[in-house]
């Protein structure tokens, strides 16, 4: 499977033509590796993302919110599963990929390394974090790799309820008691900048971008997506009477964009390198689940093997 120029040219022509690359199609080794990296990171993000929200399931203050939050976290497990299965079509093994997450080699979205400190964080995460993810994901639904695009279409359909639920929670809190209003404003103050960081570094500092765009895995630049998210979200914040913790936020009539302040990339880099508030805790939790589940997975495999053996001997 050498990357000869003719095959590469044909491959890039297919992509430029809007064709879908399927698992058994020829693809450059680098395309395959980039996809494995991107898709794994995405799947890991969904799984780790279950934890900050899972933290509040047992404290949800009404039965309706309890089932809503539980259903959302369940969806995140499902999304991780769709994407892990998508990665497997590229010849990677789910166990191996997960091992990379657990030993710290693989990355996941930095946002999930922040702690969830109040119930209001649940609404704010649904509104801002899922909101940011949707801006990204809507474009991934047209990714050039078939299994990824199809997983993303499924995910986008399910994601809509997450954001609506989050925004509804935020508006109820913002219109609630003074304590609730303070709670949600505080949550916004903590999650706003990390949500902007979800779009990644400015494209100037993003080495992979150009190639990923040529190969139809990335459709728009980080900065474009971030700006789109800001434009959408500022209006929503204003509508519910919440402020965003950015004194530089200003509407520009000429560009019709909300200009915003400088992101603290030092914080971003720290978090990405494993030095955020919850990095250790998130991985410890996943390692513990994996470890404690080993006897269960082994038992199921052993049971199935026994059943196959006995049915074979019955047949023979």
């Amino acid at each position: 499977m050498s990357d000869d120029p003719a095959a590469m040219a044909a491959f890039e022509a297919r992509i430029a033509n809007g064709e879908s690359i399927e698992p058994k199609d020829w693809m450059p080794e680098r395309y395959r590796k980039q996809l494995i990296r991107m898709m794994s990171q995405h799947a890991h993000s969904e799984i780790v993302g279950m934890l900050p929200e899972g933290n509040w399931i047992t404290r949800a203050p009404s039965l309706r919110r309890k089932v809503g939050l539980l259903a959302k976290v369940q969806d995140e497990a499902g999304h991780g599963l769709y994407i892990y299965c998508g990665v497997e079509t590229l010849g990677a093994d789910r166990t191996d990929i997960i091992a990379q997450l657990l030993d710290g080699r693989a990355k996941y979205s930095s946002i999930f390394n922040y702690p969830t400190l109040t119930w209001a964080d649940m609404g704010v995460i649904g509104w801002l974090v899922d909101g940011a993810a949707i801006v990204n994901q809507t474009l991934l639904a047209k990714a050039s790799y078939g299994p990824y695009a199809r997983a993303m279409i499924r995910i986008c359909k399910e994601e809509n309820f997450h954001k609506r639920q989050g925004y509804e929670m935020v508006s109820v809190l913002a219109a609630g008691t003074p304590a609730q209003k303070a709670m949600v404003q505080d949550a916004v103050n903590r999650f706003w900048w990390p949500s902007l960081m979800m779009f990644g570094p400015s494209d100037v500092n993003s080495p992979n971008s150009a190639e990923l765009m040529r190969w139809g895995i990335k459709r728009k630049s980080n900065d474009e997506l971030r700006q789109r998210f800001v434009n959408l979200t500022v209006t929503q914040a204003i509508a519910v009477g919440l402020t965003l913790p950015d004194p530089a936020l200003r509407y520009d009539d000429a560009t019709e964009n909300w200009d915003f302040g400088e992101i603290d990339w030092t914080e971003f880099n720290q978090v990405v390198r494993g030095n955020g508030q919850c990095n250790q805790e998130r991985l410890d939790t996943r390692r513990q689940a994996e470890h404690e589940g080993a006897w269960v997975r082994e038992a199921a495999s052993a049971y199935a093997a026994k059943q196959r053996a006995s049915s074979t001997s019955v047949a023979a």
Binding site: M1, E22, P23, K24, M27, E29, R32, K33, I36, E88, T89, L90, G91, A92, D93, D96, G146, P147
Partner: peptide
């Protein structure tokens, strides 16, 4: 329906 082809690319695995 697309072909799953999980064994397609041995190198990466």
């Amino acid at each position: 329906m697309t072909s799953p082809g999980h064994a397609a690319a041995g190198l990466g695995a």
